[in-house]
Design a protein around this nucleic acid. Structure first.
Length: 349
DNA sequence: AAGCCGGGGCC
DNA sequence: GGCCCAGGCTT
């Protein structure tokens, strides 16, 4: 039997019951695909259910505020996905008359939809013969055909896309695409693949050559950058005893774009209390009637894939009213990075 | 072509 | 501590 035939047979026996497998509605399939980019099924599933619940149609999503979308996305990471998701929903409504694009080429025009996602949606929803190439497919093909071209090189990307197209089943593409990805997730897994029980173990080049645990081959990743974050948490009580603090929205290029955080002093090294006092005066003004308290002695190291954020929080009790203060009661309404959410949860305001 | 963009789970 | 995850965008 052919490679694709065995994948299809395996899939029909072993496929998991997942929420997005109960529909071919392109809106829902698109939601699931964006959420699952670089994200495990276990982590993405509750977010998928939440988005479908809060935004049953593409119109609901398009009509939402970006703030609401980011809040629902909070904790999932790669927040450009959420911003692009919202922008794409508006594109569907405004440029496609509210009808989701029904082919690969049109899907590619949507923000946040690249080759993989356009192939996935067009094949799953419309059975269009487009081969998906995600992390699972790279692994399955690299092992089965014994290919050691780096999957994160220009040559590798082209090679594996062409190979995927060559070995796909264009007629049953809907199940074949989902099948090879599911096969990579369950059977041909990154660690400890189940080769002994694999339906392809009599013809797998990687297995025959003992290269399974070395494939797929990948070029070394970039190294981690250390950054030093000092968050100032102003706390102000009005005459009624209500508490207020301050959040700023991150703008510009880098991490956490459009999310909110406490006033931040970034430095070359972790700052001590004297430094904070000086920088506070420079940034926020008078220190009169201000009490500065160190929240955490040792810096909290928040790890992103490419940055380590060495973070200290400083409590600033102040008797001075300030502009733009927000009520503590509304603190949890803002979309914030996990680093900030964890602090808000742990700190007793 | 290379960098950037999160957070979590597993080893 | 390193790797990987139903990748895409920017430079």
């Amino acid at each position: 039997m052919s490679f694709s035939g065995k994948i299809l047979d395996w899939y029909h026996i072993n496929k998991r019951s997942l929420p997005w497998r109960k529909t071919t509605d392109p809106y829902k399939i698109w939601l699931s695909e964006i959420i699952l980019q670089q994200t495990r099924v276990a982590q993405g599933t509750p977010y998928y259910l939440s988005f479908v619940d809060n935004f049953p149609s593409v119109h609901d999503l398009a009509n939402a505020n970006e703030e609401q979308v980011l809040k629902l996305w909070q904790g999932l990471g790669y927040y450009s996905r959420a911003r692009n998701l919202h922008a794409a929903a508006k594109m569907v409504v405004n440029e496609y008359g509210g009808v989701f694009p029904d082919n690969y080429k049109k899907l590619l025009t949507l923000k946040g939809v690249g080759d993989y996602t356009a192939s996935a949606i067009s094949s799953i929803c419309f059975n269009e013969p487009q081969a998906v190439v995600d992390g699972n497919v790279y692994r399955v093909l690299a092992r089965y055909y014994g290919i050691d071209i780096p999957i994160n090189s220009t040559e590798g990307i082209k090679y594996f896309k062409a190979l995927a197209e060559k070995v796909m089943d264009p007629v049953e593409i809907r199940d074949y695409n989902q099948g090879i990805m599911e096969f990579g997730a369950i059977q041909c897994s990154p660690k400890k693949p189940l080769c002994l029980l694999c339906p392809l173990n009599d013809s797998c080049v990687g297995l025959e050559k003992g290269l399974v645990d070395q494939l797929p081959f990948k070029l070394k990743k970039t190294k981690v950058r250390n950054r030093y974050f000092n968050y100032l948490i102003p706390i102000y009580k009005d005459m009624d005893g209500a508490q207020f603090t301050s959040l700023k929205q991150r703008k510009g290029k880098g991490i956490w774009q459009n999310l909110w955080e406490f006033p931040l002093l970034e430095s070359k090294e972790i700052l001590e209390i004297d430094d904070i006092t000086i920088r506070y005066k420079e940034a926020l003004g008078d220190m009169e009637s201000v009490e500065l308290l160190e929240y955490n002695d040792n810096a909290i190291v928040h790890k992103l894939s490419h940055q380590h954020l060495h973070t200290k929080f400083w409590i600033v009790n102040t008797e001075n009213d300030f502009d733009g203060k927000i009520s503590i009661k509304k603190l949890t309404e803002f979309p914030v990075p996990v680093l900030i959410a964890d602090f808000i949860k742990a700190f007793k305001f």
